[in-house]
Design a protein around this nucleic acid. Structure first.
Lengths: 142, 142
DNA sequence: TATTGACTTAGAGTATACTCTAAATGATAT
DNA sequence: ATATCATTTAGAGTATACTCTAAGTCAATA
């Protein structure tokens, strides 16, 4: 199965501009060209793009993704290094999830704060803020 | 307790440049000035900054954070809208955590893939990639 | 065949969030 | 007092990742 750049853009949700940019930057390195010069995207390009988007969405820069892709091109000798990239990326993702869970607690407190502000006092008083924090913490066994 | 910009930078891990930038953008709006014009950061500034950093780390742009901060300045009448901001932000964080968990699965597969490549075949063969995916999925009850 | 719309390129422009510079003033130690 | 270091400002510069433009070519249809 092959796709024009427009079809591939539609399929992946990226713009044609972005797809050309990714090719120019060396992320999508195996896009075939028809004899007339038009790009012909394949399912192989799709699975590479999915990995690229995974790495990008989990915080890797275009520059570093390019390094990974270059390793893919080099073949067998870089397999160990490539595995390491995913091991490290896994750690990054786990750290990010932990961070987000802790920010979730901050946000939960803020929601509770605004829900209980009317009942418990007024915002302008810094001492009241501290009082509210204490009530929240005791209600949540902190 | 008050701090110079250098001390506050040290305490928060941000640069003095960034702190001045946040003030200029209206994020840190209540920084006191001494009679000689030097900034005097307080614990109130610190707790506002912590909320700013929470919103930023969970994906809110400087521009949107500024809108939230402007609401804080406006007082009581914006309390409801401010609560809504945190409710929406909570949803964003939960979605992001779900997304990261699903990327974690992709990364786990990639790690397994490189660990088992030697045993199970070679990378150049696309059919082998599919075979490996099937083995992985059956081992993981997918 | 003519039009319309998708595709091609190189390169310019944009948005975001800093990050740094220069020139002047403030603070502190000898 | 003088050197040294921190702080001040406005504004310029940078990094990243797109995003768009212009001028031209390719493909499908009336």
């Amino acid at each position: 199965m092959t796709y024009t750049i427009g079809e591939f853009a539609e399929k992946t949700g990226l713009s044609t501009h972005t797809l050309r940019y990714y090719e120019k930057e060396g992320l999508l390195y195996s896009i075939n060209r028809k004899s007339n010069g038009l790009r012909e995207f394949s399912d192989k390009d799709l699975s590479l793009l999915n990995i690229i988007l995974c790495l990008k969405a989990t915080g890797m820069s275009i520059g570093n993704i390019k390094q990974y892709v270059n390793m893919c091109k080099e073949g067998k000798e870089t397999e160990k290094a490539r595995k390491e990239i995913f091991v490290i990326q896994k750690q990054h993702i786990e750290e990010e999830i932990n961070k987000l869970n802790s920010y979730l607690e901050t946000v939960d407190y803020k929601i509770w704060y605004y829900e209980n502000l009317a009942k418990l006092g007024n915002e302008e008083d810094p001492q009241n803020c501290e009082k509210m924090r204490n009530i929240y913490d005791s209600q949540n066994n902190k």
